[in-house]
Amino acid sequence: MLRYILKRSLSLLVSLLIASVVIFAAVEVVPGDPASYMLGMNAQPDTLAALRDELGLNGSLIQRYLGWVGGMLQGDFGVSYTYRTPVAGMVADRLAVSLPLAIYALALSTAIAFPAGIWAAARRGRLGDTMVMGATQLGVAVPNFWFAMLMVLVFAIGLRWFPAGGFAGWDKGLWAGLHSLTLPAIALALPQAAILTRVMRSALIDALSEDYIRTARAKGLTRGQALRRHALRNALIPVLTIIGMQFSFLLAGAIIIENVFYLPGLGRLIFQAISARDLIVVESVVMILVFGVIVVNFAVDLAYAAVDPRLRARE
């Protein structure tokens, strides 16, 4: 086990190193000068030079890469070119929107998918199952930004039940915050719920064909009872794996939905930073996201290996 951990740790470090090089290179080759973006069409060359100097844009690429990585190792993610505030603080602010939104969307999708998946599995092949499966096919196929547009039209402009967008802020209370995140969370949750329902259903159906279920049925449990008492627990592993994947997707993948609802989230921060050529923000935020996914994968691998010795032997 120790050897396995060492080996995986080494590959984790190599992955992070490669990721940092790739991100830095990909961002630095983007054409466009942050200083001329900030100073506009009437800027004079000496003004531009003064600003570039202050932003630290005049160093060599290698110097700047080392400075960036060195800073991150000490927990310093740099200072935004345009906003002139530390990137770490900006990320924290945006996470206050993105994290609750991701959790909200995930909660909604789970709240839909669990009952729908169980219901469909229990009625496998019957009308209810067909209807649920048809609905999930639609849910997967709907572009979520289009769905979001239609929801804004109906629920914000038409019925005025929800704000058309924007974020009320947590200082206005939990309810106000959740209220402004509801439509975006539904838009994000819909396709995820459809996927999760399908996974839930097929995991349950697989579990139902296992021997222990037959034993349970033989003991006199109804199909529904067997499903709830025994199959559900075993179906949770694939379902939780999918939920984990969806969470990291929701955190960074909400860019388009954040734009539709003008939410000040992490995705929109990256989007704006790219168009303003706020390179340091793009680099650091993408690195944080990639770091998160890589480390979670690493932890999951270790957890699996701890549970299942065959995985270690394989390596």
Partner: peptide, 11 residues
Amino acid sequence: DPTAAFASVMA
């Protein structure tokens, strides 16, 4: 976003 601008005024 112009759509969001429209919606925010309408709402």
